[in-house]
Nucleic acid binder design. Structure first.
Length: 180
DNA sequence: TCAACCTGGTAGG
DNA sequence: CCTACCAGGTTGA
């Protein structure tokens, strides 16, 4: 269906139905599945959707499934991140350089941007990321190696990281071992 | 100008 | 290890 000048299409995965939004320039938004059963979204007649958008959705679906499996996303559709500010886009660009299984921290991103004190602003930029999962904001942890926050829900962040083999310090397992 | 953030570092228990 | 508290950059109202 089309809304607000953008195409809104659902993408079914083993983890639920994501919702992708496309502008004339590419993928401009991706939402996590809301209600597990509330996917009563009727598929739009294929011919009403531009071939270009259908192709983008195909790429999005493939990439999304791979990341959900802890793999590299592979080919991505063009991303329309024009909704963000310069600062935010710089942050998102750096996020894309973090591969599966790798993690960074808000402070490190800030430092790499030449704004050592902007770690909190980086957190804000991550939260404003319109295309989670594909723009891996979930791979950014707090300095103390803790999970940190996540707009889409901490559970998703943990799940995505777990799929990539990133194990965070168990919240209950503190100091049971001397090393780490 | 002000308050809200997916922070970080310090201080104290 | 855990809570409390404050400084800090950027954004949107």
């Amino acid at each position: 269906m089309k809304a607000n000048g953008k195409w809104v299409l659902s993408i079914r995965t083993n983890d639920g139905e994501f919702v992708a939004r496309y502008s004339e320039q590419g993928l401009c938004g991706l939402d996590f599945p809301t209600a597990p059963g509330a996917e009563a979204r009727s598929p739009e007649p294929p011919r009403e959707i531009p071939a270009q958008v259908r192709e983008w959705r195909k790429l999005t679906a493939a990439a999304l499934k791979r990341v959900l499996n802890g793999e590299m996303p592979g080919a991505l559709p063009p991303l329309d991140l024009t909704s963000g500010t310069e600062f935010q886009r710089r942050v998102w660009e750096l996020l894309c350089a973090i591969g599966p299984g790798q993690t960074s921290t808000y402070g490190e991103i800030a430092h790499r941007l030449g704004r050592p004190g902007a770690m909190r602003a980086v957190g804000g930029a991550c939260g404003a990321n319109p295309v989670p999962v594909l723009v891996p904001c979930h791979r950014v942890l707090a300095a103390n190696r803790k999970i940190g926050g996540f707009s889409g829900g901490a559970a998703w962040k943990e799940k995505l990281l777990a799929r990539e083999g990133v194990l965070l310090p168990t919240l209950s397992a503190r100091g049971t071992k001397s090393g780490d």
